[in-house]
Structure formats: C-alpha cells, structure tokens
C-alpha cells in the first residue's frame, strides 16, 4: 500500500519534471541565440518533411471521412425528410470537430513519431552532442525549425482536410445519393458561420499543432539514447499526444461551442 502511494507520488513528480523540461526546451528553441537569415533552407526542409509529406494521408483520409459522413448522415436525415441538411451536417462536423482532431491524430502518427525517432536517433548517435561541441545550439538548429514547421503545417493540413472532406461529402451526397446540389451548398452557407465555425476550427488546430509538435520533440530530445529508449519514446509520442489532443478538444469545444 505504502509502495503504491510512493509510486503515484513518483509518477506525479515525473510528469511535472517532464512538463518542466519540455517547456525549457521550447524556450531554449524559441528564445535562444538569434538565428541569421541563412536558417531559411532549414525551415523549408522541415515544412517539406512535416507538411508536404503528410499531405497524401490527409487528403485520402479527408476524402473518405467526408464520404462516410455523407453516407451515414443521409440515412438518418432521410428519415426526417431533411436531406437538404446534409450539407451543414457534413460541413459542421468537419469544421468543428473531425477536421482539427483527425488531422492532429494522423499528424501525431505520421509526422510526430517520425520527429521523435529522428531526434532520438540524433541524440543516440551523439549528433546533438557533437553539434553542441561545435558551438552550435541544437535547440536552435534542430528543434526550432521542426517546431515551427509542425505548428504551421498542421492548421494548413486541417484546412485541406476540411475542404477535401466537404468535397467528398458532395461526391457521395449529391453525385451518388441524389441530394440537390444547389441545396447542398446553400444550406451549408446558411448554417456555417465563418468566425464561429471555420476560424474556431483553425484555432483548435493551432492548439493541437502546438501540443503534438511539442510532445514529439520533447520525447525525442528526452529519449534514452538506446534503441529501446527510442522505440519507447516513439510510442509515447503517439499515445500521449493523442490523449492530449482529445482532452484539449473537449476543453476547447466546451469554451467555443458549449456556451
């Protein structure tokens, strides 16, 4: 019993110290020594790795999720004779919830785990250490570009996800199930508000981007530099950031749409 309590205490302390290290890493990465303009290619490279390379999975999943939403929504709405509400149903589900959340989960699996593994491996092969000995701050050189690339990419990916999903809904709803095409768009326009729905979704996505990228980088930077340590860190990235995204999603939804 006493052991259990001790264990809980130790775990709590570990969580706090992890949070502290992650925050310190972030500060080091963002506010350390100023970087010259020549870091530009680094940022482009990371935007490519983190953003462009996640594009395919985002487009494909967005398309299918939009199609499934339309299919499921249609069967329910048709019972009430409210097929023309299919547009708002698909658009609002995507913009408010599924777009930001599913993008964040996919991003954690696709880009987040890759970031953790990459940085963990750089640590294990002493690349970070040797950079430090060359008087180059690895937080500025390695962590900062990846962080910004993640925070910028994810909202962009979520926007693309939403747009593709709505088009996918159109494909199934209008072209296949025969909902009126004009009604699909006009009902959407009547019910979707740019500030309330589109921008709030983008804000959510920014918050998730921050969380997922920070967790991924921190787990990599803090990984035990062995192959077991890196594989454990990669798993933790996916698990922790997925849970964090779902938890924060509840809070944000309550604040944004709950009132």
């Amino acid at each position: 019993m006493l052991n259990k309590i001790q264990q809980i205490g130790a775990n709590t302390l570990a969580i706090f110290s992890g949070l502290g290290r992650a925050t310190m890493m972030l500060f080091g990465a963002l506010f350390g020594r100023p970087r010259p303009i020549k870091a530009w290619p680094l940022y482009i490279k990371q935007l490519y790795v983190v953003g462009v390379q996640s594009l395919l999975i985002i487009v494909v999943s967005g398309l299918f999720i939009g199609m499934v939403l339309a299919l499921q929504g249609y069967t329910v709405l048709a019972k009430f004779g409210a097929e023309q509400m299919l547009g708002p149903l698909v658009a609002l589900s995507l913009l408010r919830e599924l777009g930001p959340v599913v993008t964040a989960l996919l991003f954690a699996g696709r880009a987040g785990s890759a970031l953790t593994a990459e940085i963990g491996l750089m640590k294990a092969t002493e690349q970070l250490s040797s950079m430090e000995m060359m008087a180059v701050d690895p937080l500025r050189r390695v962590v900062a570009p990846r962080f910004w690339a993640g925070v910028i990419s994810m909202p962009l990916l979520a926007l693309i996800f939403n747009a593709v999903g709505i088009l996918g809904g159109h494909l199934v709803g209008v072209d296949w199930l025969g909902v009126d095409g004009g009604g699909y768009w006009s009902a959407m326009q009547a019910n979707v508000d740019f500030q309330q729905d589109v921008l709030n979704g983008v804000i959510k996505s920014f918050v998730f981007a921050f969380i997922v990228t920070l967790i991924a980088l921190h787990k990599g930077y803090d990984a035990i530099p062995t192959s077991e340590g890196i594989s454990a860190a990669t798993t933790q990235t996916v698990v922790t950031s997925s849970l964090a995204v779902l938890g924060f999603d509840f809070v944000l939804t309550a604040v944004m749409f709950g009132g």
């Binding site: 594009l55 926007l159 693309i160 747009a163 593709v164 709505i166 959407m188 508000d193 740019f194 589109v198």
Partner: peptide, 17 residues
Amino acid sequence: FVTLAIAALLLLALKVA
C-alpha cells in the same frame, strides 16, 4: 502545399461559410 491550403481556406470561406 501552402497554395493548396489557401485554396482550401477560400473554398471554406466563400463556398461553405
């Protein structure tokens, strides 16, 4: 990639919202 995202935003802003 960025252009695609801006196009998506425009679609959402003009056609959807």
